[in-house]
């Protein structure tokens, strides 16, 4: 029973105090975690971003020089930005589109749906390092099955994939699309939630397949599309492991020498997070890495806010808003 009446509350000050302490105790792991592992580090990152810091000596005040360098002098920064934008612009829509397509296929069969679902879903759980190595092998130019098949089909000069700068990003894209399973599962749930009567009504009206998708299915799944867009963009900026493993394998180096070769071949896989790692943990430019991190944070924020702003125009919540 909850006592919300004022008089009732005043009569039990001790109980009220105990209640507050209980809430505080329950919340305490998160409060400590938020202050210690999020708020303090965020502010410290902001501070470091205005310093020169190599971890060995104390941070040296550096004004806005890190940011000036980033925008005006650092050629690698823009390469990293361009590569990251490329993978997001191609990857996120493709991921969403193919997730909807495979989820839609899964709603069709009367039997066997679970078997197919398992096959589509499982790759998304595989360890990224193992997946990266698997795709490096499958797409390796010499003996990889893909190029063996392509040359059988008459393509005698097949792409170098991860080993050449022209095809490394498309290869990375294919690697990413293999793991669309978890996005697909969310869309599948969304599709199965669409009330059957809506389709029946559309059938009676004589709607075509496309019209049914456009006016019945699409509005119902826009919240899921929105969710996948936001998480896809955020995840895109953080893309790291697959690119790192691919680069060190292609360059033939170990983790200790990785800093010199991340982004290989030819910096074509130098994504934003990879570059940040290289600056911070390869070159020990922690101040510059902090500036890169803070920049990333602001860009992520702006993208999220823009998406939320436009979402009002095209996202339909059945319940009429955020629950």
């Amino acid at each position: 029973m909850r006592f919300t009446v004022g008089a009732e509350r005043r009569r039990r000050p001790r109980r009220n105090l105990k209640r507050r302490l209980t809430i505080l105790a329950f919340m305490s792991p998160w409060i400590v975690g938020f202050l210690g592992f999020i708020l303090y580090p965020m502010l410290a990152t902001l501070y470091f971003s205005f310093t020169k810091y190599d971890l060995l000596s104390n941070p040296i005040p550096y004004g806005i020089q890190n940011y000036v360098y980033m925008f005006t002098k650092d050629p690698d920064f823009w390469i990293a930005v361009r590569n990251t934008v490329w993978i997001i612009v191609w990857g996120v829509p493709l991921q969403i589109g193919l997730s909807i397509l495979t989820a839609w296929m899964l709603t069709k069969p009367k039997r066997g749906m679970k078997v197919y679902r398992t096959i589509f879903f499982m790759p998304s759980l595989a360890p990224p390092v193992a997946v990266a190595l698997a795709f490096l092998f499958i797409f390796n130019p010499e003996t990889g099955p893909i190029n063996v098949l392509l040359s059988h089909l008459g393509w005698h000069d097949p792409p170098l994939w991860f080993y050449g700068r022209q095809w490394s990003k498309p290869a990375m894209l294919i690697l990413g699309l293999w793991g669309i399973g978890s996005t697909m599962i969310i869309f599948l749930a969304g599709l199965l939630d669409v009330p059957r009567q809506l389709y029946e009504a559309a059938d009676i009206e004589g709607a075509s397949g496309w019209q049914k998708f456009r006016y019945v299915t699409w509005p119902s799944i826009t919240p899921v599309v929105f969710f996948s867009l936001v998480t896809g963009v955020i995840y895109g900026f953080q893309f790291f492991t697959q690119a790192y493993v691919s680069s060190i394998t292609v360059a033939g180096v170990t983790t200790t020498q990785a800093a010199t070769s991340v982004g290989s071949p030819n910096r074509s896989l130098l994504f934003y997070s990879v570059y940040l790692w290289q600056q911070g943990w390869g070159n020990f430019r922690m101040g510059y890495a902090s500036a890169l991190a803070w920049m990333l944070f602001m860009v992520t924020m702006v993208c999220t806010i823009l998406l939320v702003k436009t979402s009002k125009r095209w996202v339909h919540y059945a319940g009429g808003g955020f629950r």
Partner: peptide, 17 residues
């Protein structure tokens, strides 16, 4: 909000700690 936070923005000071 913290769910949306890129981990990079906290990782340098955490490493220092």
């Amino acid at each position: 909000a913290t769910l949306m936070l890129p981990f990079q923005v906290t990782v340098v000071p955490l490493y220092v700690i």
